[in-house]
Amino acid sequence: MPVTISDIARQAGVSKSTVSRYLNRRYECMSAATREKIGEVIAAADYRPNALARSLKQKRTHTIAAVVANILNPFSTSMIRGIEDFCQQAGFNLILCNADDQPDKEKSYLEMLLAKQVDGLIINTAGQNKAMLQQIAAHIPVVLVDRRVPELSCDSVTLDNRKGVAMLVDHLVGLGRRDIALFTLPFDTVSPRLDRVTGYKAALERHGIPFRAELLLETDTSQVSVQAKLAKLLASGPRPDAVFGFNNLMTMAIIKAVRALKLSIPDDIAVIGFDDWEWASLLEPPVTVVDQPAYDMGSKAATLLIARIQGKRISKRPVVAVFEPKLIIRSSCGERAD
């Protein structure tokens, strides 16, 4: 006969409800001795809770989902780790979906996750499935991470992107760089991209530098695309004295393209980027970046989501958590070593 929760309660000398609280990691008002005794009995009996029965009874699966735009992006990897670590501590399982920044793929995942009856959703949305996300948010908690969607009444975790871009432009201008090219992903629907482009234009204006449309280059993050755009830019007029990468993948592609074009960093052209990554400090020259705390952003998103799931006291209005960027100065823009 399989071991039941009643068996565990009887052997541990406690009630079934106490064992249930232990299994759900609700340790408040439970002594350390009681927790230790229940744990010993469960280990000795090799007891495994029936997850399906528990979810049917509680109307919860203790599972949340995270949909990210690009799992290969180091920002996404670090953010996911922040989500997963908090979920593990809180007793929730995590389903991870990589949408590749493709609305159709994202929609397919959202349909699957609804069928799985997840308790909540964290999403780094491509921005084109708003109606579906509105329907989902009406039934389960949803937290947007690295995104703002005004039409959705749900919590969000973002960075002050305009401030981050201003830091980069200020740094470049302080070094005498004024012809600053920005390589960006398509920015018509996704809030961080819009914010960074808006911040770029505003920062130039603040320094009295006219915005030049030819220095705003929209592309993907492949070296082939970036190199083609950069080569065309260099051949078409005055050479930019600095190139700014929208994210770490874009910055890496820019560095490869600059080297393929036989240009020197920073003598021929400065390179600066948004997001730090593991190799940025090890390249020659090391790359100056604005970093965003991806792990902390992921952890905060999971904290908000699970608080909503558990019905804890939290504002009825959507919570907007905005993190601060950090400028990390290295030497890819011609900075002097201290």
Rank of each mutant, 00 (worst) to 15 (best):
Q102G: 13
Q102K: 15
Q102T: 15
Q102V: 15
Q102N: 15
Q102P: 14
Q102H: 15
Q102A: 15
P103T: 15
P103G: 14
D104K: 13
D104Y: 07
D104T: 11
D104Q: 14
D104C: 08
K105Q: 14
K105C: 12
K105S: 13
K105F: 13
K105Y: 11
K105N: 13
E106Y: 07
E106K: 05
E106P: 01
E106A: 08
E106R: 06
K107A: 03
K107G: 04
S108V: 12
S108N: 14
S108T: 12
S108W: 12
S108K: 15
S108Y: 10
S108G: 15
Y109D: 05
L110Q: 00
L110C: 04
L110I: 07
L110T: 01
E111V: 06
E111Q: 11
M112E: 11
M112T: 13
M112W: 10
L113Q: 07
L113Y: 02
L113R: 02
L113A: 06
L114I: 11
L114F: 07
A115V: 12
A115S: 13
A115W: 07
A115L: 11
A115I: 10
K116I: 08
K116C: 12
K116E: 15
Q117F: 04
Q117S: 12
Q117D: 10
V118K: 00
V118A: 02
V118N: 03
D119M: 02
D119P: 01
D119V: 03
G120E: 04
G120N: 02
G120P: 00
G120S: 12
G120T: 06
L121K: 00
L121I: 09
L121P: 00
L121Q: 01
L121H: 03
L121E: 04
I122D: 01
I122R: 01
I123A: 08
I123Y: 02
N124E: 14
N124H: 14
N124T: 15
N124K: 13
T125W: 05
T125H: 08
T125I: 13
T125M: 12
T125F: 07
A126E: 10
A126N: 06
A126Q: 12
A126D: 06
A126S: 15
A126H: 08
G127S: 10
G127T: 13
Q128W: 05
Q128R: 14
N129H: 05
N129A: 08
N129W: 02
N129V: 07
N129Y: 03
N129F: 03
N129D: 10
K130N: 08
K130S: 07
K130A: 11
K130F: 03
K130D: 10
A131F: 02
A131Q: 07
A131W: 06
A131L: 04
A131N: 06
A131I: 06
M132I: 06
M132S: 01
M132W: 05
L133Q: 02
L133T: 05
L133D: 01
Q134C: 10
Q134P: 00
Q134K: 14
Q134H: 09
Q135R: 11
Q135E: 13
Q135I: 06
Q135D: 11
Q135W: 02
I136G: 00
I136Y: 03
I136W: 01
I136L: 11
A137E: 05
A137I: 02
A137F: 06
A138P: 01
A138Q: 09
H139R: 14
H139C: 11
H139M: 10
H139V: 08
H139Q: 13
